[in-house]
Amino acid sequence: MIVVINGRDLHARPGDSLLDLARRTGIDIPTLCHHEGLEEWGGCRLCLVEVGRPGGHGAARVVPACLFPARDGLRVDTDTPRIHRLRAGVLDLLLARCPESDTIQELALQYGVRRTSFVERKNPDKCILCNVCVRACAAVGANAIGTAGRGVLGEIALPFHDDPAACVGCGACALSCPTGAIEMVDTGFTRRIWQRDFERVRCSACGRPTLTRDHAAHLAGRTGLSAESFQVCDRCHREQAGARFLDLLGK
């Protein structure tokens, strides 16, 4: 299967999206909501590219590279003036939503947008509603957060805005957020995230804080590993492994 991207003949594999193919062959396409480990979302619209019909007939269509499947004979352009204009427009809009986000500022600058030409949101946060956190949470198996509200009033929130019962405090949402919009604070043996204080397990060997108690229980339930195996931090696990080898050697 040959796909022509920016004039280059590229070999696509079955199941490839245009983004897969482009990234594998070193063609840069910006994304915000795309995450290789998560289900495709298609919401940020930064990866828009132009595709023409095979043979070059008919007007080019604008499609998101992340969702558009590679097809034999497809002609794709990733950097036309029209694509540049659309990406700049989208980033201009995102900058109005999140003027304080470094991620957005840097991307916008690459497309020549230094300041938004639109009305900045009042009391802006850094959330661009890309849903990476929600999808990561679903992947973890907690499903603790989702979108509340609709459209421009939508936000990533707990059920009913205040029920963190399903959250295990693993922090994957905060760490995978492309703009750092989710606050997670570790203070000693307490982790605060999603309006809730989580107790962190005290490593039974070194006494340092490790993962949260809820995350440990969640992992034990999902992996079939014993709950005790999550009472020791990774460093002490390793040290104990060394000690065990030593025992085996008979000193």
Binding site: G43, C44, V90, L94, A96, V119, G151, L153, G154
Partner: peptide
């Protein structure tokens, strides 16, 4: 009525 999934509709319409 915009569902808010994609940026141009969600942010573009309010602008």
């Amino acid at each position: 009525e915009s569902c808010g999934k994609c940026v141009p509709c969600r942010e573009g319409l309010i602008q």
